[in-house]
């Protein structure tokens, strides 16, 4: 096992994901994986400890709750730029080379035979076991505050539906949706999906960017935060601190949460009840 993290290209990753591997009935060839992966400078051990800790802190029955704990600490431990995070090689390596046990633990389906979806090992950012957590943390954090991330990751419909929608790339939009969730305006998964549908549909006619301007993120502060990692220990029991690259403008979040609440209450009756 390498001491540093590797990068495993998609094409190579695909070769290892046989049916036997997905069903966890066939071991992954670790040596072959390490051999074909390109090496990076990132230490492997602190990252592996996170996954062990996550499994220690949650029983298999509460494995979905692990997301809310793991997302902020994973984000604060890896400290990647978005450019780096866009490379699927790192995520493939984490899932296939470093911590397949965690992927099996968290994503094994109840089917017969039980199996893990291929995309949990190697797939789009909203699906891959670790990429989805990192991106949820990156897209829902409010500057250094990971609070909204914990709220978002505690709701599987946010992870499965909202995370994929382009509109949340606008930070005030993401924060306004989380605020409605945190203030209990919406609670259930169905309500989350209804709100997301309403905002996403109305977003075809409305420019949230124009209604709620966002400040540019401070790239230098983000870089500083990345470099500070060397001297820091990421806490497990409290929320870590994220990069101080600026919060979403509060006035903008206010405007949108009022608007979204209105859009939500105007959803015609009957839509929420299952067809």
């Amino acid at each position: 096992m390498n001491a540093t993290l590797g990068s495993l290209p998609d094409a190579a990753a695909a070769k290892f994901l046989t049916t036997g591997v997905l069903e966890n009935s066939e071991p992954l060839p670790r040596a072959a994986i390490d051999k074909i992966s390109e090496t990076t400078q990132r230490e492997a051990e602190p990252v592996r400890q996170l996954f062990d800790e996550a499994m220690k802190r949650h029983t298999p029955a509460e494995r979905t709750s692990a997301d809310a704990w793991l997302a902020p600490v994973l984000h604060a431990t890896l400290r990647l730029t978005r450019r780096e995070a866009s490379d699927p090689g790192l995520w493939n390596y984490l899932a296939i080379g470093l911590a397949p046990e965690y992927v099996y633990w968290r994503h094994m389906s109840r089917g017969n035979p039980p199996t893990v979806s291929r995309t949990r090992f190697s797939g789009p950012f909203y699906s891959q076991a670790f990429a989805r957590l990192w991106w949820a943390a990156e897209l829902f954090r409010d500057g250094p505050d990971y609070g909204p991330v914990a709220v978002a990751c505690a709701n599987q419909d946010v992870m499965n539906t909202v995370l994929r929608l382009e509109m949340i790339l606008h930070r005030p939009t993401a924060q306004a949706i989380i605020r409605l969730l945190a203030t209990n305006v919406i609670r259930t998964g169905r309500q989350v999906n209804a709100l997301a549908g309403a905002v996403n549909t109305a977003g075809g006619t409305l420019s949230y960017e124009a209604l709620a301007p966002d400040a540019a993120r401070d790239g230098d502060a983000y870089r500083d935060w990345i470099e500070e990692l060397a001297g820091e220990l990421v806490p497990y029991d409290t929320l870590p601190s994220g990069p101080a690259d600026g919060r979403a403008r509060p006035a903008s979040v206010d405007v949108l949460s009022t608007l979204f609440k209105q859009l939500y209450t105007e959803i015609p009756a009957g839509r929420e009840t299952p067809d």
């Binding site: 978005r82 450019r83 995070a85 866009s86 950012f125 991106w135 990156e138 897209l139 382009e166 790339l169 606008h170 960017e209 124009a210 301007p213 966002d214 540019a216």
Partner: peptide, 8 residues
């Protein structure tokens, strides 16, 4: 889309 970057 790859970096989920979107600025206006």
């Amino acid at each position: 889309r790859r970096t989920n970057a979107h600025s206006a």
